[in-house]
Nucleic acid binder design. Sequence first.
DNA 1: AGACCCCTGGAC
DNA 2: GTCCAGGGGTCT
Length: 291
Amino acid sequence: MPELPEVETVARTLAPLIAGRSIVKVCLLNPKTLQGPLALEALQGLRIDAAQPTSRRGKLLFVHGSHAPNTEGAEAPQSAQAIQGFAVHLKMTGRLFVHPAGTPLHAHTRAQLLLDDGSQLFFDDARKFGYLRVLNPQSLQDWAFLQKLGPEPLEINPHDFAALFAGKKGKIKALLLDQSIIAGCGNIYADEALFRAGIAPQTPAHHLHSAQLLRLHAVLQAVLRESIAACGSSIRDYRTANGDVGAFQNAFAVYNRAGQDCIQCGAALQKIQVGGRSTVYCPACQPCVFL
DNA sequence: AGACCCCTGGAC
DNA sequence: GTCCAGGGGTCT
């Protein structure tokens, strides 16, 4: 599901539901849903930040919190004080919901966090690809995926964005999906941005002119912003933390539209494989000028 | 760069 | 049945 706009939407919709709450109890229903060196139980007693409960980095969602400092006579373990919260990767089918007390587990609930107002944070994930990771300074430092993440596409300037791809031989679509080059772009928004930029997805990056890369920067930012404004794209599984669907799937120009007419020129949209991923583009509007 | 792998469910 | 899916890791 979730690419940058969807994760951003979940972070935003989740924040008011958990701000200032304490985690009373945790329940891990699928052991593989927890990644990293720290036990989920380390979150018990954690107070989620009131001011900034959630944030996003690439496709990762962060929930920030801290344990109350040790007072004289209190016996919170020293290690607990270093816990900073947890991260969630939703992968393809992950969902985060907050339900009232007593709500039974769903068929695909993989982890459950009980909060001090009786509400429960559910992590549901049909395919079990997603994960939670409890964070402290060590856990953050040892997290290769996080440490290797490239810059945020909505924060990088056009010049630096172009420099990420200049001289690279890989296909531009595959590079856009590489989280170590640019963080947060997935299959939907790579295809949509390349269509808007008029660039064939299989073009080797070093064949792109500077003007094309600057154009790609502008349209990628535009499509991400438009999707965030629409609360993301719900193809199958994605929901906001409130259980709502997004609306940006109604604005797709190419994704999920193979064989249909190009909205710009009317030609039939074509489906190919690029970097092992299904890719839809318009052969007329996105010509392979390098061939 | 490409081929699998991790899983489950829905479409055909 | 077979193929497909918003992701990412690990092999050759």
